[in-house]
Each structure stands twice: as structure tokens, then as C-alpha cells.
Amino acid sequence: MWRVDLADRSRAELAIQVQKLSLWYGNFQALFEVDLDVKRGSITALIGPSGCGKSTLLRSVNRINERLGSYVRATGSVHVLGHNVLGEDVELARLRRQVGMVFQRPNPLPLSVRDNVLFGHRLHRADEKFSKSQEDEIMEAALRQVLLWDEVKDDLGQRAIGLSLEAQQKLCIARLLPVKPAVILMDEPTSALDPQATEALEHLIWELRGDYTILIVTHNMAQARRASEETAFMLLGRVVEHRRTDALFLTPRKQETADYIEGRYG
């Protein structure tokens, strides 16, 4: 009896639970029975050489992979907060409200800063009425949280595409916050940024820990060490090792992991 309780509790503590996830692009298998648990409110880094399936795994969690059509097939399960999101009856709009995503290249919409921040909010809470001042509050809170408010507050009507890349990427995080997702997926969010901007972003991501569960792909190992609590190392479509970040980097258990963090793969 207590075993069941334990299982329930551990499941409740997990924001994401990937079980036996295999994925094919056409005939090419990109993921092989991947298992991965992500604790609630933690930051988990996914590392591994280019092409090992990090993005594929990440993009399975919010099912944005499916934009490619029936060419992509998956088996296994991905539970987010206890719900299997690969189920047929899952409403993608609702799933993506719970699971936000930050992309490799900042991708603000071709709208004003204001409309970008409020985009998701307006989608998901269209049935409620918000006054302009309520919207302003929501927007300001989001922009403050990503430390962008002071930079843009004088011209909220400017086109988001005109901002610096750093500001654009912060904006892409800010626009997720008003809908309060449980999980934020980040796919190499700093790879288009210079070192200073990278540091600013890392700082920001670290601050979001606790309120949000963050799963972040990076091929910058220093970043994984600095800005994550747990790290999973992937190789050729499999999760090789998944532990606390310091433990994984200091005393890797698998030879492949050791080789990778010593820089023996690309």
C-alpha cells in the first residue's frame, strides 16, 4: 500500500515524465526508448553532441514536432503534471498554455512589444474581459521579471523585431509568463547571443527557477554547470546519464559522459 503512495507522490513531484519515448522522422529513428524525469520547479539541462536528439526530445514535450505532419511518429508516453500529452484527445492549445517554449533564434512576432507580451494572454483568456490598465499591469509585471521594462517602457508600441537580439530573447521569455505555464522548454536560448547577453539570460533563467520548471537544451557545458540543478547527457538518441549537475560533471559514471565533458566529441 505505501508503495502506491510513494509512486503517486513521486509522480506529483515530477513536472515531466518521459517514458520509453521513441521517435521517427520518416524512416530515421531519432529517439530510442528515452526515459527522463524532470522535477517540479527545477532547472534541468540537456546536453550532448549536435544531432543526438536534444531538440527532438524537447519538441516532443509540447508536440511542436507535429508541425512536420505525419512524417513524424512517436511511441511511448510523455506525462506533463501527470497527464499523458501524447494522447489523441489532448488539446494542443491547452497543452501549449502549460508548456511554453523559447527557441534558439529569438522569434518575436512581427507585432509591437506590447502585443507580443500579451499575445498568449489574449489567446488563452479571450473569454474574460481585461481593461487596458489591467493589461498594462500584466505586461509590466512580465517585462519587469525579465529585466526588460526599463529598456522598452518608453516605447511599448515599437516593433519587437527592431530590438537587440538580447532584448528579443528576453521578450520571448516575457510573453510566456502572463499565461503562467508550468513548464518552460528552452532550446539553446543563448546560442544567438554574445557572451554578455548570454550571462544576462542565464541570470534571468536562474531567477525563474522554482516558479517554473525549466528544461533547457545547451551545447555549452559551462552553461549547463552554471545554470542547472540536474543534467541529462544524451548520445545518439538515448539518455546516457542523468544526475545532479555537479555530480555528473565531477564524477561521471559512464565512459561516454566522461568523454563528452572532456571535449572528446564535437
Binding site: 509540447n62 511542436i64 508541425r67 494542443l92 492549445a93 491547452r94 497543452l95 501549449r96 498554455r97 511554453g100 517554449m101 527557441f103 533564434r105 522569434n107 518575436p108 512576432l109 512581427p110 499575445f119 498568449g120 489567446l123 488563452h124 520571448c172 510573453r175 510566456l176 499565461v179
Partner: peptide, 16 residues
Amino acid sequence: DGYREAAEAMGATKWQ
């Protein structure tokens, strides 16, 4: 296409 992907990832339906 990045615009469409961004909007879809925020939970917009096709028509939205």
C-alpha cells in the same frame, strides 16, 4: 515560417 511556429508554440490554433 518562424512566426507561425512561434504562435503555435504559444498555443494559437491554426486560424488564430
